[in-house]
Design a protein around this nucleic acid. Structure first.
Lengths: 151, 151
DNA sequence: TATTGTTATACTCTATAACTATA
DNA sequence: TATAGTTATAGAGTATAACAATA
């Protein structure tokens, strides 16, 4: 059996045309060099996303941060604990609503981000060079629009 | 500090224009209903990808399967062991090269895939209806081309 | 009562390396 | 020597639920 059992069934697209699989495979292609970069800093993808979101959007509460960084709140709780111990960010209770805690990047966290700026830019430029700047913009537009679909 | 520390630095794009983050967020949007579907079958995303790839591309060795399903070979070894016990697939030693083992879907595995065909189609059609069929095709083209970049 | 965040549990994936069998 | 797959381990994320504090 070397042929799919439903070559053109309406139920499934080819896996290369399955959006979830295509997104994952594309991401694997992109993440290779970025993982190499991050592993040199003792930081992983998840912590990196937390720092990037905070650096970009400023201090925010954890529920919002979890959503922006694509993490469960319970995963974020654990991650923030170690990042706070590493002095990459700080938390303070929201004075207006004391259930909330507001997370901010520290100078040390910002430093870590910005130290990677040149290498990050180089990685993206290399990718853009091979893929095409126009198509890169097109792709980012489509991904952003897709993400905004959800209610 | 409610502004990013580098609003237009060359090193970083906005996270919504960061390809790795944009790919992840878009995937989260898409996977919601699919996870609901799979959880009713006692199967997870990884097993689902393994079945989809095998069903589409036919029997193949594990190294190739791992690459196609975006899994590490060591993760695949464990997954295949339970899937074989569940009679979703079978393995046989390659007679030409006895280091290799060839993995095939069983009838039961194919059944499981095809049982989800209508619901899977409905999920994709609903998404396409909101996102636009043309843009969906465009997006899949770009993702496929991006994935093929890798040497 | 509902929300924010924490903790706990069980399961799974990742990353790495050492190991075997075969080539 | 190199390759295909297995096993072991440590670390981390996922999914879920129960929980405390606050609203």
């Amino acid at each position: 059996m070397n042929q799919p059992s439903h070559p053109d069934s309406p139920g499934f697209r080819r896996t290369s045309r399955s959006l979830p699989i295509a997104l994952l495979r594309a991401r694997e292609t992109v993440m290779g060099p970025i993982r190499d970069m991050l592993s040199q800093s003792g930081i992983n993808e998840q912590k990196w996303r937390v720092l990037r979101v905070l650096d970009e959007e400023g201090p925010m509460e954890q529920t919002a941060l979890a959503a922006r960084a694509c993490l469960l709140l319970s995963s974020l709780t654990r991650i923030l604990k170690t990042m706070e111990a590493e002095d990459l960010l700080s938390r303070r209770v929201d004075s207006a609503d004391r259930r909330k805690s507001i997370v901010s990047v520290t100078d040390r966290g910002r430093d870590l981000i910005h130290r990677h700026s040149p290498e990050s830019a180089a990685i993206m430029q290399r990718l853009e060079g091979r893929f095409g700047a126009d198509r890169m913009e097109q792709l980012l537009d489509l991904l952003e629009e897709l993400h905004e679909l959800e209610p």
